[in-house]
Lab assay of single mutants.
Amino acid sequence: VTVHVNRYTYHFDNPEEAEKFAREMAKRLNMTVEIHGNTLKVE
């Protein structure tokens, strides 16, 4: 599972951890999480 935050890319083996990380980053940056299959984008 890949998480994109701005120009950074993070890889996770565990989808739940990836989503938790993405949501935490989105909250911190006041952004939203978009899910595209195995890719989560924080925008």
Rank of each mutant, 00 (worst) to 15 (best):
V1N: 04
V1A: 09
T2R: 06
T2P: 02
T2V: 12
T2Q: 08
T2F: 11
T2N: 06
V3N: 02
V3E: 01
V3D: 01
H4A: 05
H4T: 12
H4S: 09
N6V: 07
N6A: 09
R7F: 11
Y8L: 13
Y8F: 12
T9M: 11
T9H: 09
T9P: 04
Y10L: 04
Y10E: 01
H11E: 05
H11D: 03
H11I: 10
H11R: 06
H11K: 06
F12Q: 00
F12A: 00
F12L: 01
D13Q: 10
D13K: 09
N14T: 11
N14S: 12
N14H: 07
N14A: 06
P15E: 08
P15M: 15
P15L: 15
P15N: 08
E16W: 12
E16I: 12
E16H: 10
E16Y: 12
E16K: 11
E16C: 11
E17H: 07
E17D: 12
A18H: 00
A18R: 00
A18L: 02
A18Y: 01
E19G: 05
E19A: 09
E19I: 14
E19H: 13
E19N: 07
K20P: 01
K20Y: 09
K20M: 11
F21M: 02
F21L: 01
A22S: 02
A22W: 02
A22D: 00
A22F: 02
A22T: 02
R23T: 07
R23F: 11
R23D: 05
E24W: 14
M25D: 00
M25L: 13
M25G: 00
M25E: 06
A26I: 02
A26N: 02
A26S: 04
A26T: 03
K27G: 08
K27E: 12
R28G: 04
R28E: 07
R28K: 12
R28H: 07
L29W: 08
L29Y: 13
L29R: 03
L29P: 05
M31C: 13
M31K: 04
M31R: 04
M31D: 02
T32I: 14
T32V: 14
V33M: 05
V33E: 01
V33Q: 01
V33N: 01
V33I: 09
V33G: 01
E34F: 14
I35V: 12
H36W: 10
H36M: 11
H36F: 12
H36A: 09
H36N: 12
G37F: 06
G37V: 06
G37M: 05
N38K: 06
N38S: 08
N38I: 05
N38L: 07
T39E: 10
T39W: 07
T39R: 08
T39P: 03
L40C: 06
L40K: 03
K41W: 15
K41C: 15
V42I: 10
V42T: 04
V42K: 03
V42N: 04
V42L: 14
V42E: 04
V42Y: 03
V42R: 02
E43H: 14
E43D: 11
